[in-house]
Nucleic acid binder design. Sequence first.
RNA 1: GCCGACGUAGCUCAGCUGGUAGAGCACUUCACUCGUAAUGAAGGGGUCCGCGGUUCGAGUCCGCGCGUCGGCUCCA
Length: 417
Amino acid sequence: MEEAERRDHRRLGAELDLFSFPDEIGSGLAVFHPKGGTVRRVMEDYSRRRHEESGYEFVYSPHITKQALFETSGHLEWYADGMYPPMHLDADYDDEGNIRRPGQNYYLKPMNCPFHNLIYRSRGRSYRELPMRLFEFGSVYRYEKSGVVHGLTRVRGMTQDDAHIYCTKEQMPAELDSLLTFVLELLRDYGLDDFYLELSTRNDEKYVGADAEWAEATEMLRLAAENQNLDLVMDEGGAAFYGPKNSVQTKHAIGRTWQMSTNQVDFHLPQRFDLEYQSADGSRQRPVMIHRALFGSIERFFAVLLEHYAGAFPAWLAPVQVVGIPISDAHVEYLQGVARQLHARGIRVEVDASDDRMQKKIRTAQKQKIPFMLLAGDEDVSNAAVSFRFRDGTQENGIPIADAVERIVSDVVERRA
RNA sequence: GCCGACGUAGCUCAGCUGGUAGAGCACUUCACUCGUAAUGAAGGGGUCCGCGGUUCGAGUCCGCGCGUCGGCUCCA
């Protein structure tokens, strides 16, 4: 079997019982199983923590909205093809079938930005509140063309780790710079380390905003990118009509490149939503908005990590971190005691108490790519010890229980192994 | 969305030119109690993707729909 096929996230997703795409739900709509759910939750939890430390505020918004919002944002003008068709609600008819009340359309949201703009606009804002960084794991729905749907990398329902940063023009250079640093640092924490940056500039045929604004923002993005000492590739004319962007292109272990993180300057939406803040001199000013997604979508990021690690997630992300394998039934209880100690330290641990033979249990755990196998037989029991088998096949026998627990906990906490 | 292929048990697949289904793994039960990648035996499980049509008879042929895969175009 080819390496690429062996690492294909769709194959691994089924083999490791992480997620599936039931036909009954529809094309491009995934369900995450308990194990995939665990990986995803750990990914999200770590991201939340880092965002919290970096000055983001967490918001929530609904999955559907009245049509008017997407008229204001302009999505219905330029993005309607990518949206699920509307639900028509609240219409009222008399006995003759004449309309008494026209009703209105509700849409599934394809993007989160309009909602965040409403949060910004919910009261007057002061320059003292800026930069304001609103973050949400926002689930969006896009009616992707049937031929492009592909596993978790191209879906119709996804969750973005979406943030919108509202700041003054003066704050933009520093904000773009620290943003890119933050993004790269976090991607490295997840184990990705082969990046280049891309700068998408204005498409002269299709844009809004003043020339000077574009030139200035593009230059700021360029400076931020150059500060990272990474290769910078120009994507001339590749920007969206509302502003330039830079993006992080990530190469995973089998060499495929994915665009994940994007930092996008937007001159357009603050205007459409009439966003304002009051500056120190008392005048009303328009903030600049930066759209950014770090994972891109959690689904795609999940797929990229799954392929990057070929399913062998590092211990901190692994759905099951430790499996206890008794040499015989007599040692089940002993291992359950060890498991309780690990569990008390927050480790995801199971004991394989099935009536398979020990060799078979090792094979099963190996195929599940579980980071730590803890074996115990009479020898270990009499020494109050366990024996490690790691998924690379190496082993370390007769480790005292307390040492084994510390070793596992520290590998998980330090995000090693 | 377009072009092409495909859809049989939870998974991977077999099933000749039409005569109402089979293997391995997984699962359940029993026996075995074993020191680093598969112990043995027995058993359960299938509206053959869906709906129509042709036929005495359709998993097998035809049409439509749904889904998957590969490519084009597009994207997080």
